[in-house]
Design a protein around this nucleic acid. Structure first.
Lengths: 230, 230
DNA sequence: GCAAAAGTGTTACGTCTACACCCATGT
DNA sequence: ACATGGGTGTAGACGTAACACTTTTGC
């Protein structure tokens, strides 16, 4: 027999946890929070919260991110749902994760000062509560897959960036070294970037030209069947 | 302030919906059920149910699949969570989808006779309730991505299969035509199949050699860094 | 003048694609 | 003997990967 009465069914707590990635000094970073409530008070955790009756998951993720960071208009994608019975010792909780991509330099100058929130190097961050370490791992895998088929890397960079920054970003995400000429040639072949007249003088004496991602151009190309593939 | 009391939080109904794929007569199929309860009684729907207190999502998906089909040991993967406020008119319900891969020929001879469950051609199935059409689309996308990086296609075939069957399967999943020589050459280059002495005589007079997927060999290769990529 | 990063093309290599004929067998 | 699907190899196109030197300028 098919289940036929919604009201008889068990309800559960639904949480949303955000894996917030940033990019700074050529390294991928992750934003973590020190829990200020039990259980596991004082331990490091992903930024999360509970789904409310009147919102869907995407909105909850946006709200939670905004609530703890003050950030808006952040690129987010749902990753996976976690449901092991004992994953949260306090109460049975199912958690849906989202990864978020943030341009640290632009948005977060004062975040770093705020107390229980801190950026960590993705290669060296503390043990997290519950199954949050798995979540980070899965989110990273998801990001790696995604970045290969959709030009979302820019979400981690300032609007204007140098080719070298872009390359270092992809190197950090994919955890591999890339040849600068091949990288630039490939990216240029997509014809998605606008080269500006400005230069960034912060990393060399000669200065490096700045580029912008042309979202409109990308959308038009997609409609024409273009498929981003790096 | 961080949320600090689990008990105050809203709880929700959590459903699991299964997108069950099969392969038969060179076409991808999907298993659908006619709802025998309100709302939307009589309409076609994915096979689903509600998560129970004592199970995690993987187990719920397995139970639901088994309950409506009698099948065990079915390959399943979580796809996505759907949470639009009005997606289920009866009551706020979040749904987590799983795709399942089934060898129709082997397992389901009598399923077809059972009443409210029916295999449909993936290219021609009825309008589904709620957001189930989106779920099917997303699951198909997920299957397409997955099949390119993990040898799961075999789950849709009998244990022993011909190269032609395998090729037709990939053609059906990817919705594209493949060259038989290129396909065979590529697959053989992986060295994951065992050629049997037996032939399948059902589709030609000459007969076609049967092959088996060597799961152990695949696992060993993966440990050595092998990466399936088709 | 030298250190440090920016910028720029070509060649070799490997992979992917296209393609056509013979084989075995049941009717 | 012929119709049907099974099985096999190669050559050209294409994309990827490897590689080194010149430029600019602040110190």
């Amino acid at each position: 027999m098919v289940l036929n009465n919604y009201r008889k069914e068990d309800k559960v707590l639904l949480a949303v946890d955000c894996i917030i990635f940033g990019f700074y000094q050529e390294e991928l970073k992750i934003l973590l929070v020190q829990r200020d409530f039990e259980p596991a008070k004082g331990e490091w955790s992903l930024i999360g919260g509970f789904l409310k009756k009147e919102e869907d998951l995407d909105i909850a993720a946006t709200r939670i991110l905004n609530h703890l960071t003050g950030l808006n208009n952040v690129y987010m994608e749902q990753v996976h749902s976690y449901s092991k019975l004992d994953r949260d010792p306090e109460e049975r909780t199912i958690s849906v994760t989202y990864f978020a991509l943030i341009d640290i330099a632009h948005h977060c100058k004062d975040l770093l000062k705020q107390n229980p929130i801190k950026w960590f190097d993705l290669k060296d961050f503390p043990e997290l509560i519950f199954d949050h370490n798995d979540m980070v791992q899965d989110a990273l895998t998801s990001l790696r897959n995604r970045v290969g088929t959709k030009p979302i890397g820019f979400e981690l960079l300032p609007e204007k960036f140098t080719m070298r920054q872009l390359q270092k970003l992809y190197e950090a995400i994919l955890d591999t070294e890339l040849d600068k000429r091949n990288f630039i040639n490939k990216f240029n072949s997509f014809d998605l970037l606008t080269k500006l007249k400005e230069k960034d003088m912060s990393s060399s004496k000669k200065g490096a030209f700045l580029f912008e991602f042309d979202e409109d151009k990308y959308q038009k190309k997609v409609e024409e069947g273009f498929c981003f593939k790096i």
